[in-house]
């Protein structure tokens, strides 16, 4: 067996196990950590395919930024684990039957002759000077300029959606707009109400209504 094949099977085994771990882990933190492991191994497989740029960006962007952020979010969330697992056993039989059936069908198609080496011959090996990054850069801004720009708009949608669903004016903040402060004047704040003089009653509670100042 070639060295590359050994590496491929090594990485793939860990990848599949890690992916199973994401689904089966009892604790979300562990699930996130398994996902990080899965990303690392997927990056390794991409390296084998000489897609260095994608491999590095997968590790840098997903593992370095997205998953760490995700980890913080999961840690900060107060998740009720007992409620999450509620109904697991009652759904299991149906889910297991369907899952096994689906897996069986997928193995029939994907494990069959359609994706073997004779159906899909290996691509020609590229020269050592071949740069994956350069190739990507060439098509990203030319051939794929349209979907590239659209993907930027999808990110914009996500940003706008996140802001519009979560941003709230902080009530506790003591900040006052200087504009409204400067625009304030006496007439806007104080209103003098003319009233007929009232005689003092023996009841002390009635005395308070004499000179009424209405604030804004």
């Amino acid at each position: 067996m070639e060295f590359q094949t050994v590496v491929f099977y090594f990485l793939s085994t860990i990848l599949v196990l890690a992916a199973l771990g994401v689904v089966l882990a009892r604790h979300p933190i562990h699930a996130v950590l398994y996902l990080v492991l899965a990303f690392f191994n997927a990056g390794g497989i991409w390296l084998l395919l000489s897609a260095e740029f994608l491999a590095i960006s997968l590790v840098m962007v997903y593992v370095g930024a997205v998953m760490v952020l995700f980890l913080f979010v999961v840690m900060m969330l107060d998740i009720d684990f007992a409620r999450l697992r509620e109904g697991f056993w009652s759904y299991l039989p149906v889910g297991a039957v369907l899952g096994v059936l689906l897996a069986f069908e997928m193995i029939l198609v994907l494990g069959g002759p359609y994706f073997g080496l004779d159906a899909m011959p290996a691509p020609e090996a590229v020269a050592a000077s071949h740069s994956n990054t350069r190739e990507l850069g060439k098509v990203l801004y030319t051939e794929y300029a349209y979907p590239f720009e659209l993907a930027a708009f999808v990110l914009l949608v996500a940003m706008v959606a996140a802001v519009s669903l979560t941003l709230r004016k902080r009530r506790a903040s003591k900040y006052i707009d200087p504009n409204t402060q400067l625009a304030a004047h006496r007439e806007g704040r104080v209103e003098l109400v003319k009233m007929a003089a009232e005689k003092e009653e023996p009841d002390p509670t009635a005395a308070s209504g004499a000179d009424k100042v209405v604030g804004q």
Partner: peptide
Amino acid sequence: MMSLALYA
């Protein structure tokens, strides 16, 4: 793009 905007 359509679906994300709709979810929000």
